[in-house]
């Protein structure tokens, strides 16, 4: 997924350039692996990706249990800033760290746009890859994502179509 990876990274950088108060951006798979990151600290990014997957598992069950449909986004506010996670297509998420003074309205606007784009890139790359091999089997239950009905968990956005190479 290298070509797509570079494009995802480009999208993360553009997003950070548009909103300076975003202090870190990363795209991760729903099972907690970093796909691309624009953060100061690589190790921290891996930790955040793994924690995102864990939080996502709870968020998915919560939206499901309360009948709110598929997962869209998750916003956590701490004393010193925000952590926001947005669904990006069917198998990835966009996680952002932001300063406490950020304009959350604008964060949502920009991040929703970016996550849709990243979703297209990631889903497109997966579709291109799968034809040779068997369609990916359901992921082996891992500790973080054990309860995720992974692939169908995040319904594709209406506009989403697999990109032709």
């Amino acid at each position: 997924m290298t070509a797509a990876e570079a494009e995802v990274l480009g999208e993360l950088r553009r997003l950070r350039a548009r909103i300076p108060q975003v202090t870190g951006a990363l795209a991760a798979s729903t099972d907690g692996l970093v796909l691309a990151r624009d953060t100061a600290d690589a190790d921290a990014a891996e930790g955040v990706a793994a924690l995102t997957a864990a939080a996502l598992g709870v968020a998915l069950r919560l939206t499901d249990a309360t009948g709110q449909g598929g997962f869209r986004e998750l916003l956590v506010r701490g004393e010193h800033g925000y952590v926001a996670t947005y669904a990006a297509g069917g198998s990835a998420v966009l996680t952002l760290l932001a300063e406490p003074r950020i304009n959350v309205g604008r964060l949502h606007l920009e991040a929703r746009r970016s996550s849709a784009r990243i979703g297209e890139l990631v889903d497109g790359a997966l579709h291109r890859r799968t034809p040779q091999s068997e369609p990916r089997p359901a992921p082996a239950p891992s500790t973080t994502a054990a309860s995720l009905p992974t692939r169908q968990a995040i319904p594709p956005l209406p506009s989403h179509k697999p990109k032709e190479a």
Partner: peptide
């Protein structure tokens, strides 16, 4: 926060969520 507490009017020519942010 940049979020609207309430909006009225607007439409496709004037997205008030975007305007608020």
């Amino acid at each position: 926060s940049g979020m609207a507490l309430g909006t009225i009017g607007g439409g496709k020519d004037l997205d008030l969520t975007v305007a608020a942010a």
